[in-house]
Simulated assay, not measured.
Amino acid sequence: MSTSPLSGDASNDPTEDQTGRFVRQPNGRVRPLSPHLQIWRWHVTMLGSILHRMTGGALAVGAVLVALWLMALAFGPDAYATFTGWMGSPLGLLVWFGLTVALAVHFAGGVRHLIWDAGEGLTPKSANALSTASIVIGVVVAIAFWAGLFMTGRVVL
């Protein structure tokens, strides 16, 4: 099956394209660019998917921070005091808050995927509702967790 336009149709000739819709591959073939966001209408399930991937990456950074915390704990009181000094600063608390949001949103997105894997919630309306709920619930849980930390005095600025 050929993806080339009909011969004689100058309006669809990829070799004469000035719009950037086509790209010449290393083998010399001219192929259309992937439609991606130029074609697909933005919807909340796309946001949920992108956030799930981004939060997974953020959690990898968080795992490094937890490993540094454990290393500081193993290296003695001076190293631990230095680490807690940095991570207890307003900037450090912002990093921990961001990682908490990433954890909660990623976890909620994982639950959403489990529901989809069970064959439920796959209609467009319910998929959109589940995606919105996973994002909102993740953010609300993270905010509630940190509000609890501040209200009990376990974290102070």
Rank of each mutant, 00 (worst) to 15 (best):
residue 136 V to H: 09
residue 104 A to H: 04
residue 31 R to G: 07
residue 49 S to G: 14
residue 25 Q to P: 05
residue 30 V to R: 11
residue 92 G to S: 02
residue 65 L to D: 14
residue 135 I to K: 08
residue 23 V to P: 08
residue 24 R to M: 12
residue 72 A to G: 02
residue 124 P to E: 14
residue 5 P to L: 10
residue 148 G to L: 01
residue 86 W to M: 03
residue 19 T to N: 10
residue 100 T to N: 07
residue 47 L to A: 11
residue 41 R to Y: 15
residue 145 F to W: 04
residue 39 I to D: 15
residue 106 H to E: 06
residue 67 A to K: 10
residue 141 V to L: 11
residue 4 S to P: 06
residue 71 M to C: 11
residue 77 P to Y: 11
residue 65 L to C: 01
residue 17 D to H: 05
residue 105 V to I: 10
residue 144 A to Q: 05
residue 138 G to W: 04
residue 9 D to V: 06
residue 22 F to V: 00
residue 24 R to P: 09
residue 155 V to T: 06
residue 91 L to M: 08
residue 134 S to D: 12
residue 55 T to K: 07
residue 32 P to L: 01
residue 72 A to V: 02
residue 145 F to A: 13
residue 58 A to E: 09
residue 140 V to C: 08
residue 79 A to H: 04
residue 136 V to L: 12
residue 114 L to D: 09
residue 78 D to S: 15
residue 18 Q to I: 11
residue 44 V to Y: 02
residue 86 W to S: 13
residue 52 H to T: 09
residue 110 G to Q: 03
residue 80 Y to S: 04
residue 105 V to C: 05
residue 10 A to F: 05
residue 21 R to M: 04
residue 47 L to P: 15
residue 117 D to R: 15
residue 80 Y to Q: 13
residue 106 H to S: 00
residue 108 A to H: 03
residue 100 T to C: 02
residue 121 G to T: 03
residue 121 G to P: 00
residue 14 P to M: 04
residue 118 A to I: 03
residue 56 G to P: 05
residue 15 T to W: 11
residue 152 T to Y: 04
residue 94 L to V: 15
residue 142 A to S: 03
residue 11 S to I: 09
residue 127 A to Y: 05
residue 6 L to G: 12
residue 15 T to H: 15
residue 39 I to Y: 15
residue 150 F to G: 05
residue 16 E to I: 05
residue 121 G to E: 09
residue 46 M to S: 14
residue 59 L to D: 02
residue 35 P to E: 12
residue 28 G to K: 06
residue 2 S to R: 04
residue 94 L to I: 11
residue 153 G to F: 03
residue 57 G to A: 05
residue 152 T to R: 07
residue 93 L to Q: 11
residue 62 G to V: 02
residue 101 V to P: 06
residue 74 A to F: 06
residue 109 G to C: 04
residue 29 R to C: 08
residue 27 N to A: 10
residue 65 L to N: 07
residue 117 D to V: 12
residue 4 S to F: 14
residue 72 A to E: 06
residue 60 A to M: 13
residue 90 P to T: 02
residue 134 S to K: 04
residue 67 A to M: 02
residue 69 W to E: 14
residue 43 H to V: 10
residue 92 G to Q: 01
residue 99 L to W: 00
residue 21 R to L: 06
residue 71 M to E: 11
residue 79 A to I: 07
residue 113 H to N: 14
residue 41 R to F: 14
residue 155 V to A: 08
residue 141 V to W: 03
residue 24 R to T: 15
residue 107 F to L: 06
residue 88 G to H: 01
residue 90 P to S: 09
residue 1 M to S: 06
residue 44 V to S: 07
residue 106 H to C: 00
residue 63 A to K: 12
residue 26 P to Y: 02
residue 129 A to E: 13
residue 66 V to F: 06
residue 90 P to N: 12
residue 130 L to G: 03
residue 56 G to A: 01
residue 47 L to E: 14
residue 49 S to V: 07
residue 128 N to I: 04
residue 144 A to M: 03
residue 140 V to F: 05
residue 113 H to F: 15
residue 78 D to W: 13
residue 86 W to F: 10
residue 9 D to T: 06
residue 101 V to A: 06
residue 67 A to F: 07
residue 154 R to K: 13
residue 82 T to E: 13
residue 102 A to F: 00
residue 120 E to R: 08
